[in-house]
């Protein structure tokens, strides 16, 4: 059985990020390459933050998902260069983050608007949040605290 690379990408798009399960590993932009090397499916995965504990879980989740689809000969390589950037988040990924209550990264260095009420009246609580990729902000209109996906 030969599975097309396009099919594999589709399957990968169903593998959720372990920390932010509304987006997939493809939305996150960390799967950089999928190709067949003879009988072996080879994937290149780029870590988000150097010390992110989710990185290992992600590799395991990807392998499990592909095995569930009947693939067994899988090689997952970690590729650190070029380094991951939030520019690699897909448009649909950004939309899903916002819907989930996490403000997507913005080049301005802070969230554009409150993911709850849309207000631009915001203040930073802390440069770091519940995971390495997030900072902690608050809306000064609806007063809800929220996570902001840091721009990297």
């Amino acid at each position: 059985m030969t599975v097309s690379v396009a099919q594999v990408w589709q399957w990968l798009d169903e593998v959720p990020d372990p920390e932010i399960p509304v987006i997939s590993v493809v939305d996150l932009g960390i799967v950089r390459d999928v190709k067949w090397d003879n009988e072996t499916l080879e994937l290149a995965v780029t870590p988000t933050y150097s010390g992110c504990p989710a990185t290992r879980v992600i590799a395991m989740d990807i392998e499990t998902a592909l095995r569930d689809h009947g693939l067994s000969d899988i090689r997952i390589k970690t590729r650190i260069s070029p380094p991951w950037t939030t520019d690699w988040l897909t448009e649909s990924g950004r939309a899903k983050l916002e819907e989930y209550g996490i403000a997507p990264p913005s080049p301005a260095g802070g969230p554009e608007k409150c993911p709850q009420c849309g207000s631009g009246n915001l203040s930073k609580i802390s440069q770091f949040g519940s995971t390495p990729c997030k900072a902690h902000w608050r809306c000064d209109d609806c007063l809800e605290p929220f996570d902001y996906f840091k721009c990297l």
Binding site: G51, P53, F128
Partner: peptide, 8 residues
């Protein structure tokens, strides 16, 4: 979080 970056 900073410790995590540095250990990574």
């Amino acid at each position: 979080n900073m410790a995590l970056d540095l250990i990574g």
